[in-house]
Amino acid sequence: MGNALIVAEYKGDALKKVTRAAFTFAKEYTTKQGGEFHILVLGHNLGAVVDECMSYGAAKVHVADNESLANYLAESYAQVVAQVAKDSGAEVVGATASAMTKDLMPRVAAKLDAGMASDIIGISDEGYFDRPVWAGNAIVSAEITSPVKVVTVRGTDFEPAPKGDAGGEKVEVTVSVDLGSLKKRFEQFEEVKSDRPELTEASIIVTGGRGTKGDEGFKLVEGLADLLGAAVGATRAAVDAGWVPNDLQVGQTGKVVAPDLYVAAGVSGAIQHLAGMKGSKTIVAINKDEEAPIFQVADYGLVADLFKALPEMVEEVKKAKG
């Protein structure tokens, strides 16, 4: 039986919560299909994140720490992932579905001549992968028929793996990437800084749409978010208008989220937006148009002008919190 290898994604010195969801996927898969759960962590000057990888019950943690991996490039990372996949006897090579892995994993799949299933949300007893298609309006059961299978895993559909006892074997990976041969150069990462929680990590999200009409309206969205300790989300319309950074976009082609509470203000509820948030536990919609489709998925709808409703909500939440 082959093993399940998960490519870990981290920020700073800590694993992303969504990576821990991919660990849970691998544990579930190996429980059903046999084999061992392995982790691969790549980068340069990896510190505490390696120790953290050691504490999720993986049989092996492969560590590829090399100067040539200091900056992410799909071309170099794919070489290492494919090499480790072969060396570790991986049958499934997976990662959490993120901007990085969406870029990387298909390249890995092609290297291994493997079939790939993106954004999986479950595993069937036959070992097929359930995944949303058509903006989440259908779920298909996808069988990967190649010996090696590549997947990305939705962080919203698997619980983040809890820390367990340290253990397992640490394996140093010999990295032989020739950056000069890649025909691509990393130039710069332009970080968009924010003190708010990340969308995929937050338990509350407040999202603003075109109805916020710009900075002033978005300030109100952010004000409520900060009071609730929430992440800020946006529709494509709000991102396109330049009011907020691109990585706040929630939807079919942005982030997929499922927080405990999702507040959508000035959001119409287009198919593409719903695809990214309709798994949220409780949805609140604030929209002045009572016909807006967002109300069809909202647990609580408020037909109101957000410029009046959001400041009022801040006052009421302050009162409620005492």
Binding site: D113, A114, G115, M116, A117, Y128, D130, P132, G136, N137, A138, I139, V140, S141, A142, E143, I144, T145, S146, K278, I283, V284, E290, F295, Q296, V297, A298, D299, Y300, G301, L302, V303, A304, A309, E312, M313, E316
Partner: peptide, 25 residues
């Protein structure tokens, strides 16, 4: 290398209630 078997419909969300005002919400 990827074969699609059965298609299913995701669980539909039911529309909830329209609340009267912010304090109620």
């Amino acid at each position: 290398k990827v074969v699609w078997h059965k298609f299913g419909t995701p669980a539909e969300r039911q529309a909830g209630e329209i609340v009267a005002d912010v304090p109620t919400l």
